[in-house]
């Protein structure tokens, strides 16, 4: 897995899920969705099923972060699998409800 860059799109290989990288630390990172490594959007193909232990699902428009908040991705397509790094599930980031201003 090459280094992640802001703007990269990754697809799940076990569900419909798709994310975009909002920010990422340097170094190689492997994000899994549904327990299986994600692939770049261009060459992703379904290869298996969602691991029941990683079946929390992702919701379009929600942002997910790792525990130390160095990695952030945006879900651009919902899926049945959950996102994880090194077996640890990512957390959903809360969007503060703001008054509409424009």
């Amino acid at each position: 897995m090459p280094e992640l860059k802001t703007g990269d799109r990754l697809k799940s290989t076990v569900c419909d899920g798709e994310v975009m990288v909002v920010s990422a630390p340097s170094g190689d990172i492997e994000i899994t969705c549904g327990g299986a490594p994600m692939a770049s959007a261009a060459d992703a193909a379904k290869t298996g099923d969602v691991d029941p232990g990683h079946a929390v699902g992702i919701v379009m428009g929600k942002r997910y972060i790792d525990a130390d908040e160095t990695l952030e991705v945006l879900c651009v397509k919902a899926g049945a699998g959950g996102l994880a790094i090194g077996g640890h599930l990512l957390l959903q980031k809360d969007t503060k409800q703001l008054p509409k201003t424009d």
């Binding site: 909002v22 428009g61 942002r63 969007t95 703001l98 201003t101």
Partner: peptide
């Protein structure tokens, strides 16, 4: 947009 608007 991501920090100020909730999707949908």
């Amino acid at each position: 947009i991501l920090s100020s608007v909730e999707f949908a």
